[in-house]
Design a protein around this nucleic acid. Structure first.
Lengths: 246, 246
DNA sequence: CGGCAGATTGAGCAACATCAAGACATGTGG
DNA sequence: CCACATGTCTTGATGTTGCTCAATCTGCCG
């Protein structure tokens, strides 16, 4: 567990008229952020809010935000940085269930215990929201967030269940790009291993897929973590994706 | 689209004190149902309720309950029978996102349109709940259901992402068994193709896994659809499953 | 009985995993 | 500055799982 010691501060609760009235708002929000280095963008925080007491905490890279089995009495918002939510399997493998970048909320669960654990991918600033009495007043927001999390999990399911390795990587890059504000160049906060565990592939296969995309000039890589999407349309067409509404 | 013609009836709204106050109630509920043929259990319906106007409709095997792209203004409860929720992919494949048996609710989505479609697996009786004004009063229930759907999708993700073919089939059988009331013998409402599309396998691989389980006397099959779990513990140990809470 | 849909079984193949070596970037100490 | 160590990523060679294609079998209905 973390201590609130010297890197903690309290923020006055913000009265939000009706933030996140429709699903997806905070994504749209992030689209208008200056996105040179989106996960280190600073003070201007306008994502969804839940009200009640807020606590902002800064985590080092790799630090645990909440533990598997810990009580799920808060939910969290990334203000800067990025987070992975995952679980360790009995065979030693790890499944990353989701990544979260600046502006996104995470941490709500069906039960009272966390079934997954969350860690910071980099130096990350998190705002925690108590889910006590104040929850009553924010049920619509919570419902919208839960439904959106469900939708994400279902899309993730389709991705892993039905797409090839290169399609998964392409979809991942495109999705991340959009969530980071739509810039064509961005830095991956996560390692190849993280990506592999997210896409249910091995690190080698992820690397080969990246190389293949590079080979086809669809992306270019300054460093392994610096992605530049050269042909967004080619990338999109690789996503194989779901059939339009019949 | 379906017509409400001759197979429709109206049911007076039921005032439910506080049904489904905690997540998972309807699962616990189904555990205590007389489960000789759980998906044809009759009148005694005590699952979660949402209130407001109810409409009960009976669907033939294969009939569509709602369409992809249709407006998601209701949610549904299976009273008898079983349902699959799925999507067609551009490559022609199909992903079954979830099955639902008697007592379970389905059909809520993040957006206003259905991103998946639902079909009856057999002769199935469905109660539809309007999600209009009455929704306000049932936000806690809706939230619990949404969180549970999220949890299911995430578990499904782990299953497909990290388990071998035989582990997936074993987990599927065990899960279905529990949801059907825990009887060791039950009838599969879904075809091998449905199971394959649910587990992200091919029909042949599902069949081989079944044969392997039969070979090891872990299950026996009277017919292809009649499962008898002979060694529940062996089946459980095959689930490979997630590590317990660290 | 034939006809048919669904299920099983087999043989060969492709995609991805595994194992192993090397490349690259970053940091540290001399 | 270089030499070295380390962690991360890439690339290659080989192995395995599950997919594809094809044949057969089973239960069911007329």
């Amino acid at each position: 567990m973390f201590t609130l010691s010297d890197k903690t501060e309290f923020i006055a609760p913000i009265r939000t008229g009706n933030l996140a009235p429709e699903h997806g708002e905070y994504q749209m929000q992030s689209k208008f952020m200056p996105a040179a280095q989106p996960w280190t963008s600073p003070t201007k925080i306008v994502g969804p809010q839940i009200g009640g007491a807020h606590i902002a905490v800064t985590y080092e890279r790799g630090q645990e935000i909440y533990a598997q089995g810990g009580s799920a009495d808060k939910c969290y918002r990334v203000s800067t940085g990025a987070v992975r939510v995952c679980r360790i399997l009995s065979n030693g493998g790890r499944q990353v269930v989701s990544f979260h970048v600046a502006g996104e909320m995470f941490g709500f669960e069906a039960g009272s215990q966390h079934r997954y654990f969350a860690e910071a991918l980099a130096l990350t600033r998190i705002v925690a929201f108590e889910q006590g009495l104040a929850q009553q007043r924010h049920l619509p927001e919570l419902l919208a967030l839960a439904l959106e999390a469900m939708e994400r999990a279902q899309e993730h399911l389709l991705l892993i269940g039905r797409q090839s390795a290169i399609e998964r990587v392409a979809t991942f890059l495109l999705d991340l790009c959009e969530r980071l504000g739509g810039t064509r160049q961005f830095r991956l906060a996560m390692s190849r291993q993280d990506i592999a565990d997210y896409l249910a592939l091995t690190i080698e296969t992820v690397s080969r897929a990246m190389s293949e995309l590079k080979e086809q000039s669809i992306i270019s890589l300054r460093h392994a973590r610096m992605v530049d999407i050269r042909k967004p349309d080619a990338l999109r067409s690789l996503c194989g994706h779901v059939a339009g509404l019949s």
